[in-house]
Every structure is written in structure tokens, then in C-alpha cells.
Nucleic acid binder design. Structure first.
Length: 435
RNA sequence: GGAGAGUUGGCAGAGUGGUAAUGCACCGGACUCGAAAUCCGGCGAACCAAGUUGUACUUGGCGCGCAGGUUCAAAUCCUGUACUCUCCUCCA
């Protein structure tokens, strides 16, 4: 959520910044106008309340002296009514203002490429050249089926489209990958967390998924009354429980920056992406992801974003997967982010880079919604800055490993760093069928 | 799922309709060569608004888990709700 004071005091700047993210300047004018009215009503109400408090004291005194106070009580009855009316007005205006503010995205950083969509993203750097093959590389979904380590048909039977069974060496590979990620992140100074996978609405709002992105997630309903959603949603990313861990907390300044990492499933309805990435591990309703979250001081967050990005890159480098880093344009960056670097890994069968990590500095946008604050050496309170990044998406990493490490005979060489995590297995070959 | 108890400042803890005791902690001062003890004074965090102005202060609002209601006035009465604890039930 943006700071209404910042908008109020720098209206033109705010309009200009948000225009690059597709927000019309009239929206800003509207919220400023509402704010103006709100403060006027608030002032009137507070003046009357001050009066009421004073008179109430007098009434109490009069009663103690056994004097008659019916005159004052009568007058206050009227004032009470006015206050009620004004407070209602303030509440309505606050609600209107909040409605707009909760739906405005974060201010983009000055360094963001300006443009309405992903075609304006800029490559920042590239690591290694795309993998070369002297045969035609297979797509990971075919490799998975042929090796009998991924079972799409039975997942479709049991759950539906965009679900998968990992089997045998496939399951082992998935587990190896996320354990490797968690171990590496821990070595880099992140504290491992196992968070809840169901969160309440306040948490979804704290990190910015709600109120705008309801349709992207799965919310639990009461079986007795399916129209009534419970206050629980399956997390679309561990970012939600990790950032909300700090919600409504005051952190001691000397603890910052705080780094946490968690493996979790991520549940996404993928509404609006029908027809895209219909095959393979790229776009699932349920996938595992290791997430990294940082909470830091405002002056430190841009350095922390670079560090976070490097932490994620380090994982790809150790796995030997070619990738490049892309700075997202103002129109493509996520709602909460001021600046985002996407890491895109090379996918040979598609002959292109695909997103495997998104590292964002959310500045104080989430912290304001979630009231994440810290106390500095002087005892003053400030909003913290929050950052999050995948480190990494597990399913997509498995897909990238399968495609980049495939051999002509259809087997998959296990990346060296994963061999210990695979109980010494160096190559994945065709598995026996279960049935 | 059922029953009961609880939620008040950094901590402890009183307060059954008149505007949040008290203690500890903390901050300032006195005493002292200095410290401790003692004494005096201050002190709920956060938030919002207005003003002086400039970033600190003044005034006001708000503030007793949260949200409503009753009342001239609510920590206190009423309703709803969240969470914590105990017991029962169920359960990996």
C-alpha cells in the first residue's frame, strides 16, 4: 500500500510514476480529493469530541457535587448525534480511500525499464551460453514419460490437468533439488522455516495478494455452506507466510537484515492462462518452491536486492544451468514490487529462457500493509523494507535439469552437486513400471 | 465439536459507568570523587489531525484483544468475533 501522505505531497510525481504502471492520473486526483474531504470531516469530528470530553468532565464534577447537569446532558445528546454522523462520514471516506489505495501498485524504481509489458524488459547479464546438443533434445515431459519418472496421465485421472506424479528417481530428483536449495540458502545465512500452508485473509492482504488477486488462488470453503469461504487460503507462495511472520511486529533494529528461507508447495488456480504451457512442469496448479525473504532497513534494501539475486543465481551456477538475468519493465513487474529481477533458465526443447526465479524489492509497500516496523538506535520506529525471491522454483529446476542434462539415449545425467543428494545416483535411466 | 477461564503499557498487575491505581523496568535530576542505595520528577507504545515550524515540540483525537451496540459519558453494561490456556471428545 502506498503512503497517502507521499501521494498528497508529491501528487505530480506520483501520477508520473504510476502512469508507467498503467494507472490513470485521474485515480490519483480522486484519492487526493477523498483524502481532503476525509481530513475535513475528521477535524470537525475531533473538535466536537474535544468539546464532549470537556463537558463530560464537567458533568461528572457536577454530579459529584450533587448539582443538576440535565442542561449539559441535553446539549451533549445533540453533539453526540453530530459526532456519530461525522464519524460515519469519515469512515465512508476512509473506506473509499482504502479501496483505491489497496489497488494501487508500488512505485517503480527510477532504474526500472519503462514500458507496458515484458517486451520492454532488459537483459542485465547472462551466464554461460545455451546448452548445445548434437542431437535433437527432447522436451522434459517426454523425457519424464519415457523414463517413467513423471506420470501425467494418472495425475490427470486423480486430480486433473496441471498436476503430476513424480515417481522413483523422479521423486528422488525433486527431493534432491529442494534439499540442495535449502542447504545452500542456509549456508548463505538464511534461517530455514517450515511455515503454515494455509493462511488467513489478513495475511493475504499483508503481502498484497488480496484484495486484487482473489481469482488466482484457492480459498477453502465450508462444506456445509459452499458459498461461504472460510478465512483460509492455500498459499500461492511461501512469501505469504514468511513475510507475514513479521506482521504487526516491531523488530529490534540490530536484528536487521533478517533472512529466511522455506520450502513449500505453491497453489495457483492459473486463471487466465488456459492454453499456455499446457504440457510439462512449467505451469502447475501445485508445485514446490523454495522461497527466500529478507526484511531490512530502507537504506539497505537496494544492496539486499542485489544480494538476494546473487543468492538465487548461485544455485543455478552450481547446478550448471545456463541463465540470464532480466530487469522487469514497469508494466511487467509484480504489484508489490519496486524493482524485480527475473532469472530465466535455458530450456533447450523450447529453445528459450523461462522464468525460474523472481527477485523483488517491495520497499515499504508490504511493510505498510502488514505493519512491519523496526526500532532504530534512537528508539524511533520506521517501516522496514521487505524483499522476496525464489531460490528456486523446484519443478522448473527439475525440468531444466532434465532438458539440459539429457543424453542421446534418453537418460539424464545427474548434476554433480546433486549426486550426494541422490544417494550416489549419477544417471537416471528408465524405471520399472509400478503396475 | 462441547464446557470453562482469560486477553489492560516493555513486564507484572488493580480497576463493575465519571475518563486507566500501584510495583518493576526505563529516562532526567539531586546526593556522591564515582557508583550503588536513597530521594525528587517524568513516563503506555503506536496511530491520526491541526498548528508552530522545520523534523522536534504543542494541542486535540484515539487508545484496556478486535468489531459493533446502549449512554451525556464504557476498560467497566450488552451482542458478535479472534486468539491463548485448562478439561472432555476426536485424531496423524
Amino acid at each position: 500500500m502506498l503512503d497517502i501522505k507521499v501521494i498528497r505531497q508529491n501528487a505530480d510525481w506520483a501520477k508520473e510514476k504510476l502512469a508507467t504502471r498503467g494507472i490513470k492520473p485521474e485515480e490519483i486526483d480522486k484519492v487526493i480529493e477523498i483524502d481532503q474531504k476525509r481530513r475535513e470531516a475528521l477535524n470537525k469530528s475531533e473538535t466536537l469530541k474535544a468539546k464532549r470530553n470537556q463537558v463530560s468532565k464537567d458533568i461528572a464534577q457536577a454530579k459529584r457535587n450533587k448539582e443538576d447537569a440535565s442542561e449539559a446532558i441535553k446539549a451533549m445528546r445533540e453533539v453526540g448525534g453530530q459526532i456519530k454522523q461525522l464519524d460515519q462520514e469519515v469512515e465512508d471516506l476512509t473506506e473509499k480511500q482504502r479501496y483505491i489505495l489497496l489497488r494501487l501498485p508500488n512505485f517503480p524504481a527510477d532504474s526500472d525499464p519503462i514500458g507496458p509489458d515484458e517486451s520492454y524488459n532488459q537483459e542485465v547479464r547472462k551466464w554461460e551460453e545455451p546448452t548445445k546438443f548434437d542431437f535433437k533434445p527432447k522436451a522434459h515431459w517426454d523425457l519424464g514419460t519415457d523414463l517413467d519418472i513423471l506420470d501425467w496421465d494418472r495425475a490427470a485421472k486423480v486430480s486433473g490437468a496441471r498436476f503430476v506424479y513424480y515417481k522413483g528417481a523422479g521423486a528422488l530428483l525433486e527431493r534432491a533439488v529442494f534439499n540442495f536449495f535449502l542447504d545452500e540458502n542456509t549456508k548463505e545465512g538464511y534461517t530455514e522455516i517450515i511455515p503454515p500452508y494455509l493462511v488467513n485473509d489478513a495475511s493475504m492482504q499483508g503481502t498484497g495478494q488480496f484484495p486484487k488477486f482473489h481469482e488466482d488462488v484457492y480459498t477453502i470453503v465450508d462444506n456445509d455452506d459452499p458459498d461461504k469461504p472460510r478465512d483460509l487460503t492455500l498459499i500461492p507462495t511461501a512469501e505469504v507466510p514468511l513475510v507475514n511472520y513479521f506482521r504487526d511486529e516491531i523488530i529490534s533494529g540490530d536484528k536487521l537484515p533478517i533472512n529466511v528461507t522455506a520450502l513449500s508447495p505453491a497453489f495457483r488456480s492459473e486463471a487466465g492462462s488456459a492454453g499456455r504451457d499446457t504440457r510439462g512442469l512449467i505451469r502447475m496448479h501445485e508445485f514446490r518452491k523454495v522461497e527466500m525473504v529478507k526484511v531490512c532497513k530502507p537504506e539497505d534494501s537496494w544492496n539486499q536486492l542485489e544480494e538476494l539475486t546473487h543468492n538465487a543465481e548461485h544455485l543455478l551456477q552450481k547446478l550448471g544451468l545456463p541463465y540470464h538475468v532480466v530487469a522487469l519493465s514497469t508494466g511487467d513487474a509484480s504489484f508489490t514490487s519496486a524493482k524485480t529481477y527475473d532469472l530465466e533458465v535455458w530450456m533447450p526443447a523450447q529453445d528459450k529462457y523461462r522464468e525460474i526465479s523472481s527477485c523483488s524489492n517491495c520497499t515499504d509497500f508490504q511493510a505498510r500493509r502488514a505493519q512491519i516496523r523496526y526500532r532504530d538506535e534512537d528508539g524511533n520506529l520506521h517501516l522496514a523494507h521487505t524483499l522476496n525471491g525464489s531460490g528456486l522454483a523446484v519443478g522448473r529446476a527439475v525440468a531444466a535439469i532434465m532438458e539440459n542434462y539429457q543424453n542421446e539415449d534418453g537418460s539424464i545425467t545427474v548434476p554433480e552437486v546433486l549426486v550426494p543428494y541422490m544417494n550416489g545416483m549419477k544417471k537416471i535411466v528408465k524405471q520399472d513400471s509400478l503396475i
